[in-house]
């Protein structure tokens, strides 16, 4: 009777215990990111589907703007398309918390809380995922506008998408935070979502210039981070990478990201 024989017979009946390794934040974040991205890879059409709204604005609101501008198609698109990009980032990431909300109700989120994953990674991995659909959708919107006279500046677009990605991570994290605090109250999630989204959109100068609006609107726009983002995207997509507006947009995006990830991680750590 040798030791090896005993060991192997035990292994044969039990099966080896899985090599469960200690995990770290970066590894966990990557794991969560991969899981969250899989449905997108499996069903890429869902990314296109959420483009309906921005494309409707581009196709139905755009002509009105062009008419108001006296028929200057190219000039209007140059002004309007960056705003639509911000709309893509805003609407796409604002509702992402609904997925988490649903997973909290089914029990799938609970499963991830029992797994040996860092709580912060559960939030950050999800928020980082937002970058994937955002980049694809933003690129499609720009490409759709090109045949109509939109002048594409590649470095500007890349920089613009990068700034949007930073903002999207932050805004997605805020949406997850909202989901975590609403728990099983779907109505509350959608109420906050609807109440905030449209004022944020209109008061950013995304659809119409705010210069002609009343003073209070201009004050509201001045404290709306999206205004800076819209201004920065307009400069970047025009190829004006050195514009002072770009700095403002970067600050707004980084601030949104920092606040979103901070409150999101805090909410996830408290989750049970």
């Amino acid at each position: 009777m040798t030791t090896t024989a005993t060991t192997s017979s035990t292994t044969a009946t039990t099966g080896p215990a899985a090599s469960v390794r200690p995990t770290g934040f970066a590894r966990d974040t990557a794991t969560v990111f991969v899981r969250e991205s899989r449905p997108l890879v499996r069903d890429p059409f869902s990314v296109i589907f959420s483009l309906v709204q921005p494309l409707v604005f581009l196709g139905l609101f755009g002509p009105l703007l062009i008419g108001a501008a006296g028929g200057d198609v190219a000039g209007t698109l140059q002004w309007f398309v960056p705003g639509i990009l911000v709309m893509v980032a805003l609407f796409g990431t604002a509702s992402t918390g609904a997925n988490l909300l649903f997973e909290m109700q089914t029990g799938s989120h609970e499963r991830t809380l029992v797994a040996p994953l860092s709580r912060s990674a559960l939030l950050v991995g999800r928020a980082l995922k937002e970058v994937v659909p955002l980049t694809i959708q933003g690129t499609i919107v720009v490409l759709v506008a090109v045949p109509f006279g939109f002048r594409l500046d590649v470095p500007g677009l890349v920089a613009g998408l990068a700034v949007l990605a930073v903002f999207g991570i932050g805004f997605g994290a805020l949406s997850y935070t909202l989901a975590l605090s609403c728990r099983n109250r779907d109505w509350m999630f959608w109420m906050v979502h609807q109440t905030l989204l449209f004022p944020l959109m209109i008061l950013s100068g995304m659809l119409l210039p705010l210069e002609d609006g009343p003073d209070w609107m201009q004050v509201a726009a001045a404290v709306n981070p999206l205004s800076y983002l819209v201004a920065a995207e307009r400069a970047l997509l025009a190829g004006d990478l050195g514009s002072p507006d770009v700095i403002g947009g970067i600050i707004a995006a980084v601030a949104t990201c920092a606040v979103g990830v901070f409150v999101g991680v805090r909410a996830m750590r408290r989750a049970n």
């Binding site: 899981r35 899989r38 449905p39 069903d43 997925n99 649903f102 997973e103 109700q105 089914t106 029990g107 799938s108 609970e110 499963r111 029992v114």
Partner: peptide, 12 residues
Amino acid sequence: YVGQGSSGGHTQ
């Protein structure tokens, strides 16, 4: 751990 709910993500 197998909780009361369904553990799989609905779109996965």
